[in-house]
């Protein structure tokens, strides 16, 4: 709002008379926004170069530095399926199937129908011993679209439905012709909203934990002295049931329940 109040004339005036206190606030905001805009562009410009450099390290067999380079890009706040995919590859080559699975799953959240991501995820999962969490067929079907795709589908149908309803109000003569289309779009809206609701529920209420240490011992209670409940291998995917301080209550694919330290796992939203 402040920026909007700064007219071009006032900006021009403040260049000539910088001592005017009334114009200083506007100029700072303007310069800050200008700097942020170009900083963002510069950051975006660096990412492909960093990505290529990381790929080069990977190609040279320097998987540790490559993983570090991919991770650094991801920590800058940008992401793409390819970035997570390559990071997963590097972690797998480093003997970290848990981190690889977590990376592939994050890539899958962005690009759920990417055949290469699915293939590598299946391959690494196949390497992990012990019972693992399996998604239901229903969850598999919902996972064909990402949460944002479900959102866009539902929003698109929602907008179209209301535009058609508004059109019917404005042009009553078109109502007979629009009846079938409107009913279809309303049905699509209901179905897509139901899908979105289910996908969002799964995303937020069914988080999973991927074990990222060589062997994690789940305990019967949330403290280190508790008895062993079961052992989970690096890469095992567990359902998160609850959390208490730095401990997660988890269940493995065979239904065994135990507590794991948070630092031994990577927590992912439900797919």
């Amino acid at each position: 709002m402040k920026f909007r109040s700064c007219s071009s004339e006032r900006q021009f005036a403040l260049i000539k008379t910088k001592h005017e206190p009334t114009h200083v606030g506007c100029s700072k905001i303007f310069i800050l926004l200008f700097a942020l805009f170009f900083a963002g562009n510069l950051l975006a410009a660096d990412v492909p170069a960093d990505f290529n450099a990381a790929n080069k390290l990977y190609a040279e067999g320097k998987f540790g530095p490559a993983a570090g380079a991919y991770e650094k890009i991801l920590q800058s706040g940008v992401a793409s399926p390819a970035l997570w995919f390559n990071y997963g590859n590097a972690e797998f080559k480093l003997g970290q199937p848990g981190r690889a699975i977590a990376a592939y799953r994050r890539a899958e959240l962005l690009a759920p129908r990417d055949a290469e991501v699915r293939a590598n995820l299946a391959f690494v999962r196949n390497q992990v011993a012990g019972p693992t969490l399996r998604q239901s067929r229903w969850e598999d079907w919902l996972g064909a679209l990402s949460l944002d795709e479900w959102t866009m589908l539902a929003a698109g149908a929602f907008w179209l439905a209301f535009v058609l309803l508004a059109l019917r109000q404005m042009q009553p003569a078109w109502r007979p012709r629009l009846r079938g289309l409107t009913s279809g779009i309303i049905l699509l809206t209901i179905l897509s909203c139901a899908g979105l609701g289910t996908a969002a529920t799964t995303h937020y209420s069914k988080p999973t934990a991927v074990v990222i240490e060589a062997e994690a011992t789940a305990r019967s209670g949330p403290f280190a002295e508790a008895q062993d409940a079961f052992k989970a291998q690096n890469g095992a995917e567990l359902a998160v049931l609850g959390r208490r301080n730095d401990w997660l209550q988890v269940a493995d694919g065979s239904g065994r329940i135990g507590w794991l330290p948070v630092k031994q796992v990577e927590i992912l939203p439900g797919a």
């Binding site: 492909p48 793409s80 390819a82 970035l83 995919f85 391959f123």
Partner: peptide, 11 residues
Amino acid sequence: ILPIKDDLGAL
């Protein structure tokens, strides 16, 4: 595993 991707894709 399949090899890494060369194309960064949409950021």
